[in-house]
């Protein structure tokens, strides 16, 4: 979450709650709503690393609020992030571990594992479809995020089929 927060702060200084809201509005309900505590912890670490600084803004009838802004070092870190190519997704599939190792345990057979996993993926797909229906068509970021998740799920299913052909 460090770099997305730096990116939001590059636009304008903000306090923690505003950053949480900005993330929610941008990514819609497809994005797991960040926990405000986690945002403050991340901001604290960014501050310690010298990437952001905080100023106390006095409020008349409430406690002061901390407004964060980007430092020169923070901007450099952000630019470096934007400029470098991003790693592709790596296969780190927990299910695959189960599938390969299951016969060793003698408690499950691979055919049953694959079949159950396929039905689970289809349930997830149905959930994504319903999420897409509920998502504001104007929120292109959220729509693309859901479409990306669907394409990944399709690839997982295709891979599952290959596993079933070769391992069962």
């Amino acid at each position: 979450m460090r770099l997305p927060l730096l990116a939001l702060l590059a636009k304008e200084p903000a306090h923690g709650y505003e950053l949480k809201q900005a993330l929610e509005v941008t990514f819609g309900s497809a994005y797991p709503s960040p926990n405000i505590g986690q945002i403050y912890v991340t901001l604290g670490r960014l501050e310690k690393d010298g990437f952001v600084r905080a100023v106390d803004v006095e409020q008349s009838n409430r406690p002061n609020k901390k407004v964060y802004y980007l430092t020169a070092a923070g901007r450099e870190a952000l630019e470096a992030w934007v400029d470098e190519p991003t790693e592709g997704p790596r296969v780190r599939d927990e299910f695959f571990m189960k599938l390969v190792l299951a016969p060793l345990t003698g408690i499950a057979d691979r055919m049953a594992l694959v079949n159950r996993q396929r039905r689970h993926y289809l349930s997830l797909m149905r959930d994504l479809d319903e999420l897409a229906e509920r998502t504001d068509p104007g929120n292109r970021v959220a729509r693309l995020l859901i479409e990306g998740a669907m394409l990944h799920l399709q690839a997982d299913l295709d891979w599952l089929e290959r596993c079933q052909e070769d391992l069962t």
Partner: peptide, 9 residues
């Protein structure tokens, strides 16, 4: 009712 744990950034 979100898919927060399906989509992961």
């Amino acid at each position: 009712g979100t898919a927060g744990d399906i989509v992961e950034l």
